[in-house]
């Protein structure tokens, strides 16, 4: 049967055969379930086979140990993406996407990695398909406080989740919205809204909630705690490097740039030099929450 999910206001459909074991593994999507719609932004179907004849490689992600490997190929009528759990492992799945990313067919090659394959396929299609809809899939951990969302951005392992934990412990009224892949959308009135998603890395935090963006803050390890505001140029670099999407496709590059520029124009961005201690949360919350008092 086909399930429909609404993430950041975008509805997509996922068709999984009833007998497939995946049906009982996708509880992280449940909070986002919505009624069927006639024209979802994209739909994904599980398929027994995907024809990838004539594919040519357009992009191969950097192969860092422990991180998934993604390769993107072009076809005359669309795209193929292959993913592996980490470098050196066989590919988990092969995904065909139509030229405009509105239709996908996913062939799972390693059944034990089905959920990984499904999550990856949906995240990829969501990021690519909604890039032209003022929407960014970001790599961030997000805390909500006082009705606003505060995003921590950095490469994996720097301390995004750690800084969120410090707020949960030391800044009253905080809760976690998402720990890895929130969705950021510039709304029609120009304000920036931050949405929870069914994708949250290793932390099971799948909240179907959304809040106006309070601030985007880059986390940088240091031997002291200090926070400072970024200028537009630095803020753009931060948003650019923390967003999924295929900047190397000219159309998507234009769309993403337009959204980055709107986010930078509408949201305060900071860099936090910090230790993993309570004082770091005191320093960041002191500056960030004060903006809205």
């Amino acid at each position: 049967m086909t399930n429909y999910y609404k993430v950041a206001g975008h509805v997509f459909g996922v068709e999984i055969p009833d007998a497939n074991p995946l049906c009982s593994q996708i509880s992280q999507y449940e909070p986002f379930t919505c009624p069927a719609v006639d024209s979802p932004v994209f739909s994904l179907v599980l398929a027994d086979s995907v024809n990838d004849e004539g594919k040519s490689l357009v992009y191969s992600g950097s192969e860092e140990s422990g991180e998934p490997v993604i390769r993107l190929y072009s076809l005359p009528d669309g795209w193929i993406s292959e993913v592996a759990i980490c470098p050196g492992r066989p590919i988990s799945s092969r995904l065909y996407m139509s030229k405009d990313f509105s239709a996908g067919r996913l062939q799972i090659l390693r059944p034990s990695e089905s959920l990984f394959a499904l999550n990856n396929a949906l995240m990829l299609m969501f990021a690519f398909r909604t890039a032209g809809m003022s929407t960014l899939e970001m790599h961030a951990s997000v805390i909500v406080n006082g009705g606003r969302a505060y995003l921590w951005l950095a490469t994996s392992g720097t301390g995004k989740s750690t800084h969120s934990s410090l707020w949960l412990k030391h800044v009253p009224g905080s809760h976690l919205l998402n720990d890895d892949n929130p969705i950021v959308r510039v709304m029609e009135d120009g304000h920036v809204e931050v949405f929870g998603s069914p994708w949250s890395g290793k932390t099971p935090c799948y909240r179907n909630e959304h809040y106006p963006a309070g601030a985007f803050t880059r986390i940088r390890r240091a031997d002291h705690n200090a926070i400072s505001r970024l200028n537009n140029f630095e803020a753009y670099a931060l948003i650019y490097s923390s967003s999924s999407g295929f900047k190397f496709d000219p159309h998507m590059g234009d769309d993403l740039h337009a959204t980055f520029e709107k986010v930078v124009g509408a949201s305060p961005c900071f860099v936090l030099d910090c230790l993993p201690d309570a004082d770091a949360a005191r320093v960041s919350s002191g500056t960030l929450l004060k903006m809205y008092e």
Binding site: K247, E261, V264
Partner: peptide, 17 residues
């Protein structure tokens, strides 16, 4: 590209991945 009135150069082609 133009960023809020300033000019910037970004890598967007596959050649500069």
């Amino acid at each position: 590209r133009t960023l809020l009135g300033e000019h910037i150069i970004v890598a967007e082609g596959l050649e500069q991945v």
